[in-house]
């Protein structure tokens, strides 16, 4: 049988190499055709902005102006030392910590209730989650109406108890409280649903074993459920910090020009596109924001990786 074939019919190594090369080129061509549009868009509208922000951030530059002065790191200095800059950090810190802590605490309580085996909870879960998917603009408008000191729903509640509604919009601190409340209202369901999923992944026999060992319901929660929710809690801390730092829609609609509510992203917008049009300073905020979020996300990814390994 071997004799039936002449050697010439078998490809020699160079020809084989060429065939292999052609195949590789074809695969690459398909790969690029499938991926290139997305990659080019990402390069143009995510990576290029990242780089150009660094350049912009060193300019004293009014948005729209033809010329700008190079000022080195002055914008960063302003961001970390000037009263405006420090106030932004203070507001961001208060806003982030209070929204994260309160959403997670109430979210956990809601999850515990939703985890009970009672009819109607599927509906309740859907309802609780629903604000999370709604337009921040619409939500902000609705709550503007509720917080209106003269005719808002809340003012009627205060009137019922014989009190006057505080003027949420005039007082800087109250304005911050107001947007925190609305932000929590919108994002609470996310925490509740994620905690609910965490609770349901706890093996039932663990809790039963603890019950047999005479652990009461409260003790069971603190010695078993809560520790086992550790990864969920960590995940939520990271994701809610990330989204709180990016809050914008509600802040812009409820306090259009910022009034004690200038968290980092809102300040980035107001400085660049508000009355000041300080584009260079806005770019500096962008750079710092990116670094902060990048570090937080990297920490999360490392943790998740470890979790996967030991799971």
């Amino acid at each position: 049988m071997k004799a039936a074939l002449t050697p010439s019919e078998v490809q020699d190594p160079p020809a084989q190499k060429a065939a292999r090369h052609r195949r590789g080129v074809r695969e690459w061509a398909t790969f690029l055709a499938f991926l290139a549009p997305n990659v080019l868009l990402i390069l143009a509208f995510i990576y290029y902005p990242l780089a150009s922000n660094i350049y912009y951030s060193m300019l004293d530059w009014r948005l729209g102006a033809a010329s700008a002065d190079f000022v080195g790191l002055k914008n960063y200095l302003t961001l970390f030392t000037s009263p405006t800059g420090l106030d932004m950090w203070r507001v961001t810190l208060i806003f982030t910590i209070s929204t994260v802590v309160i959403s997670m605490a109430i979210g956990l309580l809601l999850a515990l209730v939703l985890n009970r085996n009672i009819p109607g909870r599927t509906f309740a879960r859907t309802a609780v989650f629903s604000p999370y998917v709604l337009s921040g603009v619409g939500v902000g408008m609705v709550w503007n109406f509720i917080f209106d000191p003269q005719i808002g729903l809340l003012s009627h509640v205060f009137a019922f108890f014989g009190a006057n509604s505080p003027d949420w919009y005039l007082d800087k601190n109250l304005a911050l409280v107001m947007v925190i409340v609305v932000y929590i209202w919108k994002n609470l369901g996310y925490c509740a649903v994620v905690y609910l999923a965490g609770l349901q992944s706890i093996p039932k026999d663990l809790l039963e074993a603890a019950a047999i060992d005479h652990a009461g319901p409260v003790r069971r929660f603190f010695t078993i459920s809560f520790p086992l929710l550790g990864p969920t809690t960590f995940f939520l801390i990271i994701t809610t910090i990330l989204s709180s730092m990016q809050a914008f829609d509600i802040l812009r609609i409820m306090t259009p020009t910022g009034h004690g509510t200038n968290t980092i992203v809102f300040e980035l917008f107001l400085q660049g596109f508000g009355v000041y049009q300080r584009a260079g300073y806005s770019a500096a905020i962008s750079v710092v924001l990116f670094l902060a979020l990048f570090i937080i996300t990297t920490v999360q990814m490392r943790f998740v990786e470890r979790k996967v390994h030991y799971a």
Partner: peptide, 19 residues
Amino acid sequence: EFPTSGSILFDGADVTDVS
């Protein structure tokens, strides 16, 4: 899979690198 070396023939025709 494609061999690192050698060839595969169907009825004498080299198909080693045919997809």
